[in-house]
């Protein structure tokens, strides 16, 4: 068995408990997030992995209170940042949190930056909302941030519009904007998906170095297992609005317990599988409004047994923080 995982700091920064986010259609309810629980410690990097449509982005938006309501509904759950439950906060209370304690980096930097304001304006605005500092001080800090994220000649770039920058530089600006008020947590929603592979690595390294410099936590939302394997301390695998497996990076990558995680890993191309046919999970992600009964993964699962179509699977503890939502595999492996 693995060594027990020790988080960099003992205190829990963010705790999400049994979060359920539903979207009301005209004659059905789409259960996009259906009972998700996880935690992020101070200084830690946590990855939320899953295919598109599994509810990971909605989870991220729910943390910041950005789920559009209506049609969205937070059906139940708690989101704790240190000691405050974010779900009970008013809009004003949330505004104090957003950008200040938790900030977000979005997937597509071109559309996520406002095209009619200069990048300087947009970064300085982020400082201005939360801190009362002079115009000059804001400017100085803005230049400092741009230097930190590795943008050359930041004074000149301040007056540039987003369309004048390259994709990687735009994402650096987004990161600078997220860092503006020294947040305790950055949520990065597929921060590298829209970028070239070489630029991807640069951005990931940038985030890592910033994180080392300040005891900041990062929650990555991604479908890219390559990203996960390079950055994650701990991993949560999501499927159809549920966490199906959680553990440290090594636990999940070396000893995956859930058939879905195993499928995901098996479908990664690697040198050892050269010349062999690449595995792919049959079927497709269920529509969140019409999820199958029992285990949501059972129609696609190669290990499914009759009970899977009936019983909702519970979490099975493999010790040292490694949990998997697949009782049949658990009991089979216990017997062996």
């Amino acid at each position: 068995m693995e060594e027990a995982y020790a988080p960099p700091h003992k205190d829990t920064l963010l705790l999400v408990e049994d979060l359920r986010v539903h979207f009301r259609g005209h004659d059905h309810v789409a259960r996009a997030v259906d009972g998700v629980s996880f935690d992020v410690h101070t200084g830690e990097t946590v990855c939320l992995v899953g295919e598109s449509g599994c509810g990971k982005t909605v989870t991220a938006l729910a943390i910041l209170g950005l789920v559009p309501i209506p049609p969205g509904v937070i059906a139940s759950g708690k989101i704790r940042l240190r000691d405050t439950n974010l779900l009970t906060l008013t809009e004003e209370g949330l505004q104090d949190i957003r950008g200040n304690q938790i900030s977000m980096v979005f997937q597509e930097p071109l559309t996520a930056l406002n095209p009619v304001f200069t990048i300087g304006d947009q970064i300085m605005e982020a400082i201005q909302v939360h801190e009362k500092v002079s115009e000059n001080e804001r400017r100085r800090r803005c230049i400092g941030l741009l230097t930190d994220v590795g943008i050359p000649s930041p004074e000149a770039r301040l007056k540039d519009y987003p369309h004048q920058l390259s994709g990687g530089q735009r994402q650096r600006v987004m990161v600078a904007m997220a860092l503006a008020c020294h947040p305790a947590l950055i949520i990065a929603d597929e921060p590298t998906t829209a970028l070239d592979v070489t630029v991807q690595a640069q951005i990931l390294n940038l985030m890592k170095s910033i994180q080392h410099a300040s005891a900041m936590s990062v929650l990555y939302i991604t479908h890219d297992l390559g990203v996960v394997s390079t950055v994650a301390d701990r991993v949560y695998v999501m499927y159809a609005g549920l966490i199906v497996e959680q553990g440290t990076r090594d636990q999940v990558f070396q000893h995956p317990r859930h058939p879905y995680t195993r499928g995901l890993l098996a479908s990664l191309p690697s040198r050892s599988k050269r010349g062999k046919r690449l595995y792919s999970i049959p079927g497709s992600v269920p529509n969140p409004a019409f999820k199958p009964k029992g285990c949501p993964f059972h129609p696609r699962c190669s290990a499914a047994i009759a009970e899977c179509a009936v019983d909702f699977p519970g979490m099975c503890d493999y010790g040292h923080g490694h949990l998997s939502r697949c009782p049949p595999v658990y009991s089979r492996e216990r017997q062996e």
Partner: peptide, 11 residues
Amino acid sequence: DYVRTARAKGL
């Protein structure tokens, strides 16, 4: 998206 970014900034 940039409207969501603006909200995420805490405006």
